[in-house]
Design a protein around this nucleic acid. Structure first.
Lengths: 144, 144
DNA sequence: TTGATAGTTGACCCACGGGTGATCTTTTGC
DNA sequence: GCAAAAGATCACCCGTGGGTCAACTATCAA
């Protein structure tokens, strides 16, 4: 399919709903409702984001979620690593197992360069940039 | 994962094993053995390639498989369409369902251009180009 | 201290890609 | 025609990603 997983999309939209300065706590339920993400599944995504140290949760009454760093200091490539796990950056375009420097597929060199450029783009895109889009009213479609 | 499916890889390697002029018949068993692809699964891949009109099979004794056109006239993007099905070319990079022209994600415009370039590359890469690599002894790894 | 709040964890389901084996059908050679 | 060859088709298994529910735990307020 040539794309990141749907969980990645959930993560990005969820993070964009949180306080960009990482000060105020927001409810997971509010995040789920605002971004139109299934609440139980959001919990799974949040677990991975917490394991990666991107968000932290405070439980109990008055609790909630917050970014551990300002949104301007969190890049999409960090989120991708947290959600997809390491290794998504080295996948062969043609899906050929065993494709490597030693045994390159016909697309290997081209794809290596193209992949690096995509990674650079994700690296230079921060969460507050994503907010510019979500604030305009981004929501998961009803028929997700 | 940002890659095409493993079936795509199988398809490419399998097609590269066939007669580039589309004249001589080759056995599916030989293709599977040469490219180190599981025979039963290869049958599934071949079915999709046949449905797309890329290869044709002749059964019975003395039968086999052949390309319907010369390898120089078959592009990787055709193979991708046959294996992945239509729609892989429009997938959102971030995996956000509902991402479209009307509701673009933060990567939408960039990804649209990058995707087009990838497609162009697949379009301009023909099967005989793939053969230059496989003839050097390309095989699926033993521990596939 | 009790109860409501809110995040965390685990078990469980379904769909799909990858993988395998058995069976069917067509074609040829004897 | 009969049997072997060889591709086509079907049913089934497994692991993973997406999705859901229920139980658990930490926290605060009354």
């Amino acid at each position: 399919m040539i794309s990141l997983s749907q969980s990645m999309g959930y993560a990005v939209l969820a993070l964009a709903q949180m306080d960009p300065l990482g000060r105020e706590l927001v409810l997971a339920a509010d995040v789920a409702e605002a971004a139109n993400i299934p609440k139980p599944y959001l919990a799974k995504v949040l677990a991975r984001l917490q394991a990666a140290g991107i968000v932290s949760g405070k439980r109990g009454q008055g609790g909630g979620l917050r970014l551990t760093r300002p949104a301007s200091a969190i890049t999409l490539i960090e989120v991708a690593d947290a959600i997809e796990g390491e290794g998504w950056r080295t996948a062969c375009l043609l899906g050929i197992p065993g494709c490597s420097e030693g045994k390159p597929c016909p697309m290997h060199d081209y794809w290596g360069a193209a992949r690096a450029e995509i990674a650079a783009r994700l690296q230079s895109t921060t969460l507050d940039r994503v907010r510019d889009f979500t604030e305009a009213g981004w929501k998961m479609p009803e028929t997700a």
